[in-house]
Structure formats: C-alpha cells, structure tokens
Amino acid sequence: MASPIHLELSRPQLLISSVVTSVVTGTAAEAATAQSPGAEMPQNSKVSMIVNDERHEIEVDNRTSLLDALREHLRLTGTKKGCDHGQCGACTVMVEGRRINSCLTLAVMHQGDEITTIEGLGEPGNLHPMQAAFVKHDGFQCGYCTPGQICSAVAVLEEIKAGIPSHVTSDITAAAPLTTTEIRERMSGNICRCGAYSNIMDAIVEVAGTRA
C-alpha cells in the first residue's frame, strides 16, 4: 500500500507534503479505507493514542494537528494554541517522553504513541513537583504559556540527564551540565510575554536541584 519512498520520508517532510504522504504512510496511521490508484483519497483516519495513560481512539481529518486533536477531539484544553506554527511553545506536550510542539505535528503521525499533556502531569491537589514549583515561585502571570512551559521544563531536565547537547553546550561529547545557562537556552522555545522568566527559572532550578 505504501511505496518505499514514502516510508523513507522524515517527519518534517511529511509536514511539508501533507495530505498524500500522511495518508499512505501506513506506519504513521491506518487509513480509514483502503485506496486504489485514482480513487478519491480518504480524508479521515482513525488514530489510537495513549494520552495521559488512557487509550483513545479518534477519527480525525488527516490534516488535523496533534494540538487540535487534543483540544477539539479529546477536550484536553490545558494545552494552548498561541501561534499555531511552532514559534511560541504554548502547545508543548510530551510524546514518548520527549517534548514536541503539538501544533507542528499531525495527529495521524502518533498512532500508538504515549502522550503526556499538562493534565496528565498532575492536577490541583496532586501536582507534579514542577507544577508545585511554578506555584511556589509565581512562575507565570496570565497563565496562557504555563502548561507549555511546565511540559517543556519537565522534558528539559530529562534531556540534560540523557546527555543531549544544546546550542550552548561547549563540549557535545561530554554530559551536558545542569546550569542555568543550559536551562535558559533550552527553555527559549517557550515564549512568556508577561516576562515571568525569572520566576520560571527559579521554579525549574529548584526542581533540578532537588533531583540532582
């Protein structure tokens, strides 16, 4: 069903070439209906994802972003839409433990993936340590970027732990150091227009410190 050339496409290429590739790439999603050459392309696909430890089966338009799938199909509105093109970070969630801008990835590319949103990290009364640290340090003002900041922060500490280098890592062959410079650089994909960066950093540093 899928030609080899399609299977070799990377995710960024998939995004660019959109409809056709995302439908026929069997590994990314199961097409709702089988297709033959010349037949009308199916517009929708069924996707099964594990979101916050719960399996969800949804049928989405193939062009639906993961962000819209979360917000509009699963009603998980904690993940925010700031710019809808991967520049602000408000939509950050974790896929298989790694952070991702959910507006820049299609829902159909996440067949079988484990996804954690802000709702899955913790809830009022039972907060994740990072969420609690953001409360303690006033790591927000308007709150709109906050879910993305927190998901990003949790993943940043994991990235550093896993030795993944960043733009400011001087020695990429050694383990990335857990410094504020590293954390600030890695958090720079999450815009806070209220400018609460000092308090956001304080929250992350506290969590990083207690875990180190």
């Binding site: 998980l76 509105t77 907060l127 409360v135 006033d138």
Partner: peptide
C-alpha cells in the same frame, strides 16, 4: 500567590477558547 495559580499550572484555568 495568584488566585488561579493552582489552575494555571494544571491547565484547568479556562480561557474562552477552552
């Protein structure tokens, strides 16, 4: 702390689109 602090960090503070 901000009155909505616990909701902001949990994604349960509703904005109009939510």
């Amino acid at each position: 702390r901000h009155d909505s602090a616990h909701k902001h960090v949990a994604g349960s503070a509703d904005y109009i689109d939510d």
